[in-house]
Simulated scan of single mutants.
Amino acid sequence: MNYITIVGGDEREIALGSMLEAAKYPVRYAGFEAFPRPVNNTAAPLKESLSLSLVVILPLTGIDSNGKINAPYARESLKIESRDFGGIKAGTLFIAGRISDAIKKRLRHERALIYETGEWDDLALLNAVPTAEGAIQAAMEKSKITLHASKCLVAGFGRCGKLLSQKLKGLGAVVTVAARNNTALAEAETWGLETLPLEQLTTYVHEYDFIFNTIPALVLKKEILNKVKPMVTIIDIASKPGGVDAGYARKYGLNYHHLLGLPGKVAPVTAGKILFTVYQPLIVKQYRALEPGWEAK
């Protein structure tokens, strides 16, 4: 049988697998030995699992240059070794957020198909919803004041920044958007938001009760953190390494939190449904091409 094998990931991948199973796809899991409820986790070596797969789905964090895969429910560190590539069938579809160049080169040598979805607009836009809600949930839990009537700074006005600003405003917060791009600042102003050129952050950062960073580059440096309110809550949702000088923030006891993978943590079923929506057309195409007579259920 040609399986869909889900290798690593968190609860959103489990939710995705359940939806694929409900659609009558043959699904196996690798790296979920410690998941709290039973799943069709394979105990087979990864090489064997890959050899039986028509589709391999990996986390949005993907595979790093050492072959390591994020697998919080695996009993041991999960990684693809050189020996695992030999069994991959030509045409096997690999779907991951990102894959290192070295691993991609090896997969292409085995004539695998590769889709890196980490920067796909549809996936990023849909994931912005649980990300924004998760950031707001964390801010409520980590602070001793309400968001309502508070002064919130949102650094960045991309997919997450826009949705987060909108939701904060809906909760009654006074929201300021900080960005470098004049077009982004102009758009934020048309949404009824306050705006601040990013280069002026040092001058005004002391005014804010909450700071949300969405920019994946160092924005809140030591000289800026020196001027924040003592009771400020800082939520960084940017991808690694984030946009906050984490070492300095922790050293001086700031209420700082770098939150990664929020969709899978705060809304795993919704996050799994998003993956299903985006990935299923790729999977249908794969099965129609390589499984004669197959039709989606």
Results as ranks from 00 to 15, higher is better:
286 Q>Y: 03
23 A>Y: 02
117 T>H: 02
49 S>K: 04
294 W>N: 04
62 G>I: 08
112 A>D: 10
79 K>N: 10
142 K>C: 07
99 I>W: 02
70 N>V: 12
86 G>T: 09
116 E>Q: 14
46 L>W: 06
23 A>I: 00
231 M>G: 00
9 G>M: 05
281 P>V: 11
25 Y>L: 09
65 S>Q: 14
13 E>R: 06
10 D>A: 00
199 E>C: 09
171 L>S: 09
180 R>Q: 11
239 S>F: 12
85 F>T: 05
211 I>Q: 05
90 A>F: 02
156 G>H: 11
44 A>M: 13
14 I>G: 02
144 K>Q: 13
180 R>K: 14
283 I>D: 01
176 T>M: 01
197 P>I: 09
34 A>T: 13
22 A>L: 12
80 I>E: 01
259 L>W: 14
44 A>E: 14
203 T>D: 15
118 G>A: 03
259 L>N: 12
237 I>V: 15
225 L>C: 10
65 S>R: 15
24 K>R: 14
277 T>P: 02
3 Y>M: 05
118 G>F: 04
123 L>R: 06
179 A>T: 01
213 N>S: 11
97 G>Q: 00
268 P>G: 12
130 P>E: 01
235 I>N: 03
135 A>G: 13
273 K>Q: 15
253 G>R: 10
199 E>H: 15
150 S>G: 12
212 F>L: 09
230 P>N: 11
210 F>I: 08
52 L>W: 06
33 E>A: 11
186 A>Q: 13
83 R>V: 11
250 R>Q: 14
150 S>F: 10
60 L>N: 05
60 L>D: 03
24 K>D: 15
16 L>R: 00
223 E>G: 01
50 L>R: 07
71 A>P: 03
113 L>K: 13
71 A>W: 03
143 S>K: 09
88 I>G: 03
25 Y>Q: 00
52 L>F: 03
214 T>Q: 08
72 P>F: 07
292 P>D: 14
130 P>C: 09
29 Y>Q: 07
160 C>S: 12
198 L>F: 06
177 V>L: 09
284 V>K: 15
139 A>F: 02
88 I>N: 02
202 T>G: 12
158 G>C: 10
274 I>T: 06
190 T>D: 08
16 L>G: 02
21 E>C: 05
70 N>K: 13
53 S>I: 00
210 F>T: 04
136 I>E: 04
226 N>L: 14
188 A>G: 07
43 A>T: 14
243 G>D: 02
179 A>N: 15
33 E>F: 07
169 K>M: 11
80 I>W: 05
136 I>G: 04
237 I>P: 00
112 A>P: 14
166 Q>V: 12
114 I>C: 05
286 Q>D: 05
22 A>N: 14
75 R>G: 13
206 H>W: 14
118 G>R: 07
116 E>R: 01
205 V>R: 04
77 S>P: 00
92 T>E: 06
25 Y>I: 03
18 S>I: 09
49 S>V: 11
46 L>F: 10
103 I>L: 07
282 L>R: 07
265 K>M: 10
168 L>C: 05
222 K>W: 04
33 E>K: 08
62 G>K: 07
70 N>I: 11
26 P>A: 08
281 P>W: 09
13 E>D: 11
104 K>P: 07
160 C>G: 04
192 G>C: 02
168 L>F: 10
207 E>N: 12
46 L>P: 04
